[in-house]
Amino acid sequence: MSLDLLDVTVRLGRGESRVTALSGLTVSFAPAALTALVGPSGSGKSTLLAVAGALLRPDAGRVLLNGADIAGLSPAQQARLRRERIGYVFQSGNLLSGLTALEQLLAAASVAGRSPRAVRARAIELLTEVGLGHRLRHRADQMSGGERQRIALARALLLEPDVLLVDEPTAAVDRDRAAGIVDLLAATTRRHSCVTVVATHDPVVVDAADHVVDMARLRAGADSPR
């Protein structure tokens, strides 16, 4: 599995507020590797994740998932790609209100057309792995930011995606918990040979990453694979 962005340009907004978020960007993400995407706020990290995750069609360029261009897919095809092959962990606002931790995962399975009953055991296993085995039936919106982020991570991993895109997974957790999450991400990446891209400011994530892509340098035309 590989993910390559070739000469990608994305413009956002309309009229006078239209800005170029990514301009002629080319970057490759290695399979079975955890890549940390770093850079200051506004450098285009989230936009890159959106393009890579088939949430946003670039104005120019190609996005190759295992060699197949996904940039030109229709919205319906993009939605199918997202539910079948891409796992996404958003920075916030990433859970369905009113549902328990376990239901968050079962709902995701339902969206993907999978039987909630069939994935129930695996969902419990994943929530246990992220340290929430004792809070399966607690409402997610009554949990802390860090716990919510771990639920979102478990949900993204549930369907074993080919591409895992994670936005600031450790922003709301303490250092020990952050290390646990990074270990889980790294282990999952290797176990499933998926492409994992993590937008982060956290040195813990950067230290554990197989590669680091600095958006500032990338925009200037130079990648910084470590």
């Binding site: 949430l55 319906a76 939605a79 199918r80 790609l81 997202r82 539910r83 079948e84 891409i86 996404y88 958003f90 606002g93 990433n94 859970l95 369905l96 209100s97 995701a108 969206v111 993907a112």
Partner: peptide, 18 residues
């Protein structure tokens, strides 16, 4: 009220028909 949740479901790949 639940547009954020609907957006999340769309981001997770839920089709419009669903």
């Amino acid at each position: 009220q639940r547009r954020p949740e609907l957006a999340l479901l769309r981001a997770m790949g839920a089709s419009r028909a669903r």
